[in-house]
Design a binder for these strands. Structure first.
Length: 701
DNA sequence: CTAGGGTTAG
């Protein structure tokens, strides 16, 4: 009440009555510091100058109060001036100034001050000084200096202060020294809730999920009271573990303890439910929160996107803007992801323009999201443009560019980016090598692939996993070395999955190795007796070998297990609309014209050598009808529609949910030639860029 | 008169 009265009466600088004692001034300076009220502090400062202090000690305390005030108000030059003019300083003078620098983002200045103070030698650092200095080390990731502080702390016996212990723990964890953090955590007695929060958060951040879970279990057995931050951290752990059960238990615990949900906790819960596939639970939490901020909006959008509801995410984006909440860099990254999933180049371009206008382009996550969006929308060149323009890059940037090029079959470009990455001294990781090895596959560079696997990967300390070995299988297959691929699989001690075996099976199909294919298919069906892809490939293989009895057998098997081929769906974005085509469906308003267009295109390419692959049609119908079924494949419909109404001359971009079939691949190659158009198709596996009668995949996919 | 931990992206 006193504060309010004072501020309303003395809003502008003027002498304060003598009844305002020194004690009161000191108290008010603390208030002005804590409320960041620069003006009030300046008034008090003026007051103090006019008054002579009783003792040297009083002068020091007054100056400290002022330094603290200016430091809290981020007026570091004023704070520093006062500090420099002091004839005598105590530990509070130093620590107030240091804390100011730390919070103003000038941590290196804190370390410099600490050195100066130690050189002087008259003052021994106390727990306050260490807490601030160690926090500064965390801030600028100065592990070496942090370790030195640790030694110093051990000598001075100040580790018993929880502030110091937790600062050290946090320092090790932010400097990625999880071992060091764990040592502090376990060897120093007395863990409070902050120790647990920092420890779990640190382990989580560096991917030690099981270790984090262990600490959580230990924390549950201790009589510590959880706070809001504990809940945020633990919910995050559930998200990373994808452990919905644990998440539900934590959510329950919040209800039981009657904790007030803040926007931090809600955002974390929304995110956790979203990543665990519980979109309705996520929505409930979102709706129950009254003070939404940009983070909670972004979390709910992402939850929808994670669950394939892209349109709802776009709607939420519009709603958020209507409420006057400005999107930030994460919001754009999330929405760009949605564009990437849909291959919505047009929406992505519009967003990019808005990002440029709002000045968010320099965020690494924005650049990364744009590279991803452009690559997945079939415009890897624009992705590379973004990449080139980026001032700061991280591991995700490099990986996105490498795998972007790789998916487009541009192996040479992918490897070039990888070389530049090494030259830029960015350490490659697990994901990097998946892109690199698949690039070798596209180029058919068998020796180079093995060189990367055996030499470069070992050199960088990345342990190869099944994804890398699968790339090697693909590489051998592509080079026609099926036997070698098979023996590689049988001799490499790794848990091969269906994806790996299907790579080999697909090669058997493409290269007509019926015997091996049958064997491989058996292996896959032992792993997963319902693998649709295998049945389809197997049936296609029988058809290719003209073994109609085999085709019939497979169909019977599929019927018996009630396995249905997922319908092929393709879509194309024209202007602002997305047009969806499902194989054999005639629901599109222009259905008959589109079918006419397909027939027209097919009759144009037949003289050029197109022969309908009726042998691959699974239906029990006459040949003529089989040909008709082929012409109703969703990608043919989408391409035809694109040629009918998309802007003349530009590329046609189509997205398909499954892999392209042989027949469509063959037909669209020739269509690209007769229409003189670039046709880019993103299928479940990769991109096919058709131009002048050939495809970027080099006839192998 | 001085000190610590959290949410949305890949």
């Amino acid at each position: 009440m006193f504060k309010v009265q004072f501020m309303s009466i003395h809003a502008r600088p003027r002498p304060i009555s003598h009844s305002c004692t020194l004690e009161k001034t000191k108290y008010l300076l603390k208030v002005s510091a804590d409320t960041r009220n620069l003006k009030l502090g300046k008034v008090l400062h003026g007051q103090l100058i006019k008054r002579s202090a009783e003792s040297i000690e009083d002068v020091v305390i007054q100056s400290n109060s002022l330094i603290n005030h200016y430091a809290k108000c981020r007026q570091m030059s004023l704070a520093c001036q006062l500090f420099d003019r002091m004839l005598e300083r105590n530990l509070v003078s130093w620590s107030s100034l240091m804390a100011g620098y730390l919070h103003s983002g000038l941590s290196s200045e804190v370390l410099r001050l600490f050195k100066t103070m130690n050189l002087d030698g008259t003052l021994q650092p106390n727990e306050y000084i260490f807490t601030t200095v160690i926090s500064s080390c965390s801030d600028i990731r100065a592990l070496e200096e942090g370790k030195q502080c640790h030694c110093y702390v051990l000598k001075s016996g100040l580790l018993s202060y929880s502030y110091v212990k937790n600062a050290l723990l946090y320092m090790y964890s932010s400097c990625s020294d999880v071992q060091g953090a764990f040592e502090v955590f376990e060897t120093v007695s007395g863990s409070d809730i902050l120790s647990y929060n920092s420890m779990i958060h640190g382990l989580l951040e560096h991917g030690y999920l099981n270790k984090a879970l262990e600490v959580l279990i230990k924390m549950v057995s201790e009589p510590v009271v959880w706070d809001n931050i504990t809940y945020v951290t633990v919910i995050n752990l559930c998200k990373h573990l994808k452990d919905l059960n644990l998440g539900l238990q934590i959510h329950n615990r919040i209800f039981r303890t009657g904790l007030k949900l803040d926007v931090f906790i809600c955002s974390a819960i929304i995110d956790m439910y979203g990543k665990c596939g519980k979109i309705f639970s996520a929505r409930n939490v979102f709706d129950g929160l009254c003070n939404h901020n940009v983070v909670s909006w972004t979390a709910i959008m992402d939850a929808y996107i994670q669950n394939g509801c892209f349109e709802e995410a776009f709607n939420l984006f519009i709603q958020m803007e209507r409420k006057g909440v400005l999107p930030n860099e994460c919001t754009y990254a999330v929405i760009l992801n949605s564009c990437a999933e849909l291959s919505s180049l047009r929406h992505g371009d519009v967003l990019n323009a808005r990002i440029k206008k709002s000045g968010l382009s320099d965020y690494v996550i924005i650049g990364n999201a744009l590279i991803n969006m452009y690559s997945k929308s079939g415009d890897v060149e624009s992705g590379h443009q973004v990449f080139s323009d980026m001032t700061y890059r991280d591991i995700i940037t490099w990986n996105s560019m490498i795998s972007g090029y790789s998916h487009h079959g541009l192996g040479r470009e992918a490897l070039e980016v990888f070389q530049n990455m090494l030259a830029a001294e960015e350490a490659p990781n697990y994901v990097t090598f998946v892109g690199v090895l698949s690039a070798c596959g596209h180029l058919g560079l068998v020796d180079k692939g093995f060189y990367y696997l055996n030499q470069i990967m070992k050199g960088t300390g990345v342990t190869p996993g099944v994804e890398h070995y699968t790339c090697i299988v693909g590489l051998l297959c592509r080079a026609g070395l099926l036997k070698e691929a098979e023996s590689f699989m049988r001799s490499t001690p790794v848990k091969w999955d269906v994806v790996a075996w299907r790579t080999l099976l697909n090669a058997c199909h493409i290269q007509g190795n019926f015997g091996l294919g049958k064997k491989v298919a058996e292996t896959i069906l032992e792993l997963d007796p319902d693998d649709v892809g295998t049945y389809i490939l197997l049936s296609n293989m029988y058809a290719k070998a003209r073994r109609w009895d085999g085709v019939a057998k497979i169909r019977k098997l599929m019927r018996g297990r009630n396995i249905k081929k997922e319908p092929g769906v393709s879509w194309i974005e024209i202007r602002n609309n997305i047009h969806v085509f499902v194989s054999e469906d005639k629901k599109h308003p222009h259905s008959s014209q589109i079918h006419e267009k397909v027939s027209e295109l097919l009759s144009l390419i037949k003289p050029l050598g197109y022969v309908p692959r009726i042998d691959t049609v699974l239906h029990d119908v006459e040949d003529e009808q089989k040909e008709e079924y082929l012409s109703y494949h969703s990608e043919k419909l989408a391409v035809a529609y694109g040629l009918m109404i998309a802007p003349i001359g530009g590329p046609i971009r189509v997205i398909k949910n499954l892999r392209m079939c042989d027949d469509c691949h063959c037909a669209i190659k020739l269509i690209s030639m007769v229409t003189n158009r670039k046709i880019i198709i993103r299928d479940a596996n990769r991109f096919h860029c058709f131009k002048n009668g050939s495809c970027s995949c080099g006839e192998y996919w």
